[in-house]
Structures are given as C-alpha cells and as structure tokens.
Write a protein that binds this DNA or RNA. Structure first.
Length: 350
DNA sequence: ATAAACCGCCGTCAGACGTA
DNA sequence: TACGTCTGACGGCGGTTTAT
C-alpha cells in the first residue's frame, strides 16, 4: 500500500487549479479540488497523508494544529493543539479583514502564491496591468483555480492613469503649465484639454479630454447633486467615460472659479478631487462640506464594493476548503478501513 | 396574469480599528 | 487625536420563482 487511494489521471478537467489545492494543506500533497458549487466533479486526492506530518489549518480566524501520528500499531491518531491561546483570543476579539484572512491563507499554505497586494502595490499593479486585464479576470487563485494571474485587487473601473495619480496634479483646467499656483478661468460647458507633465503618458494611458457640464443648467441629469456642483466628464485612454462631481462656482460673467483638480493617493481609483481656492463665504463653506460629503460617500461606496468582493472571494475560498477537507476526511476513513482489514487479515494468517 | 416570497446587489450609516 | 479604512447592519430596488 503506497498511500495512494485515488489514482485519477492528472489531467482531469477540474485539475486546472492544482496549484491552489496544494496550498490548502501540507498534509495532502496533490489535490485537485473544485468548489462545492460545482456538482459532479469530485475532489481528487492523489497522494494522501503521511504519519507524523503536520499541517496548520487557518480559516475564518481559526488557527488549529492538526497533528497526525502513528501510535505504533499502525493506527493513525490525530491530536489537535492550539497555537497559543493569546493568539486565538486576539483573533476572536476582532475578526480580521477578509484581505488579512486571505493573505494569511496564502502565506501559510503556499509561499509561492501571490498575496493580495497592499494598497501601494495595488497602484503599481494597476499601472502596469489593470489597463490591459479586465477586472473580472483579476481574481485570486483560490477562487479561480484555472487562473494563473497574480492576485491584483483593483477597482472595477480601470484607472484613468495611475501615473497621473503619481503626478497627482492635473491642474489648471485648461492650464498646461506645471506651476500649481497658476490657475486660469474657463467658461462652463467648454471642453478642456488636460495636460500632464508628460504628455505622451497622458495620452496613451490617462485622461484625454474633460468636458465641464453645468448640471444646474440641465445639461446633465444629476440627481441629489448638491447645489453648485458640476459634473466633470472625462474620457479615458480606452475611450470609456468617467464622471466626477466637482463643486464649481460660476461667476456672473459665466466663468468658472479656479479649481485645482488632483488625484490624491488616498482617493479611490478613478476619483479626482477638486480643491477650491480661496473659499470664504458661508455658502462656499456649505458647498465645501457638501462636496466633502459627496467625496466621503463616493469613497465609502467604493470601499463597500471592495469589501463585498473580498467577502465573496473569502466565502468561495472557504467552500473550496470545505470540499477539500471533506474529501480528505473521506480518504482518511477509507485508508483507516483498509488498514484495519489488512491488520485483521494478517492476524488471521498468523 | 398577478401578488407574494425570495434573492442578490447596492448605497448608506455607524462603529471599530489602524495610522500618521 | 484626527482622519482614513473596513465591515456589519439596514433598507431599497430590481429580477426571478412560485402559488393562486
């Protein structure tokens, strides 16, 4: 008996994600697993547990050491030991974020597997990849066994340009200079060409045009848009349209007061922020607070979206894990059974 | 056909937590 | 300590299913 229970072929249709199941536990050498959501595609275990092998299973904030030992009589005995009560308390006190959980899963089970990128790395990844890979493709290997893409968590909407964010100041509506102190007045409704420090970068990756449309004049339907706000529409390099709400005061002469449009790193992807200069009146303060609220809501919207996406992925990951563990359990039971039979048969012959 | 139940998604709020 | 982020909870909305 070589410990191999299932001798399925290596190229089963569901084996595309063999790298992922390997990460699930060090106990099982090669497992081909599919989420329970896919029926009639059995989880395959090609090489099963070895005595005295130890694995750490981390899921849903639970840390457990699974120790499998041979008791000297051919019986496999599993003993569970906690990894530090402190640690467990720490985990139970506040559930870690889905990002953290997935990161832990990834790092504990597969050093090679890509982790969920941190925010800074996200931006870098977005710069290089996001514009070419649709967001729905960018998913963890845990949930998409067939995917060999790195885990990249990005916003659903491609960025205008991450590099633009780095430059951080696409400034001076209509102003192509790099001097942030010089802002020019423009007339509402006109199309503005935005320039960056490196024009080539901008035209190939980022913003191309911005059209300022005065929502108050009915040019654009803007429900629940605070008074004085204006929708800034810009066209991305891929031709898709993006909209940003910007508070703008129109002077009697029909001029837009100077605003600095920038994209601070703290903002969600695709969001630029307009900072008014020289606001003093109560009305302007109210507008400013309304703008801040809009911004906050926008960011929270985005955060909620991301949170839900992570949660979904986490749940999928857990489902996969359940499938694998169930199969593992089944295999162990079968192995125990066969060993018992073998033992009994041996005892009879002697 | 239609009302009710169910489900999934979304936006918002509140509170906990992390960080500069 | 102020601010930003994350996430549970809540309610609304639209689509689908089911019973009548």
């Amino acid at each position: 008996m070589d410990g191999s229970i299932d001798d399925k072929s290596e190229d089963s249709p569901s084996s595309s994600g063999s790298s992922q199941p390997q990460n699930l536990s060090t106990v099982v050498h090669t497992i081909t697993a599919v989420p329970t959501a896919i029926p009639n595609q059995p989880v395959q275990v090609q090489s099963v547990i070895q005595p005295t092998q130890q694995s750490v299973i981390q899921a849903a904030g639970q840390i457990q050491t699974v120790q499998v030992e041979e008791d000297g009589e051919g019986h496999l005995v599993r003993t569970d030991t906690d990894i530090g009560i402190e640690k467990r308390r720490e985990i139970l006190s506040r559930r870690p974020s889905y990002r953290k959980i997935l990161n832990e899963l990834s790092s504990a089970e597969a050093p090679g597997i890509a982790k969920i990128e941190e925010d800074k790395e996200e931006e870098a990844a977005i710069t290089s990849i996001q514009t070419t890979i649709p967001s729905y493709v960018q998913t963890s290997e845990c949930t998409e066994p067939s995917s060999h893409l790195p885990i990249i968590y990005g916003p659903p909407v491609p960025l205008p340009s991450a590099r633009m964010q780095d430059h951080s100041k696409v400034q001076g509506i209509g102003d192509t200079s790099q001097d942030s102190s010089s802002f020019k007045k423009v007339t509402a409704g006109q199309t503005i060409q935005i320039a960056a420090a490196n024009q080539n970068e901008l035209t190939t990756q980022g913003l191309q045009t911005i059209t300022m449309t005065n929502a108050g004049q009915g040019a654009v339907t803007a429900a629940a848009m605070p008074a004085g706000t204006t929708i800034v529409q810009y066209t991305q390099g891929d031709g898709s349209q993006q909209f940003v709400t910007v508070p703008v005061s129109i002077s009697p002469a029909g001029e837009v007061q100077a605003y600095q449009i920038r994209a601070p790193s703290s903002l969600p992807a695709g969001v630029v922020m307009a900072t008014p200069t020289g606001i003093t009146s109560p009305q302007q303060l109210a507008e400013e607070s309304a703008r801040k609220r809009e911004l906050r809501l926008m960011k929270n919207r985005e955060a909620a979206r991301e949170c839900r996406r992570r949660k979904k992925e986490y749940v999928k990951c857990l489902e996969t894990r359940v499938a694998v563990l169930e199969q593992q359990n089944k295999t162990l039971i079968e192995e125990l059974k066969s060993l018992k039979e073998l033992y009994c048969h041996k005892a009879e012959t002697e």
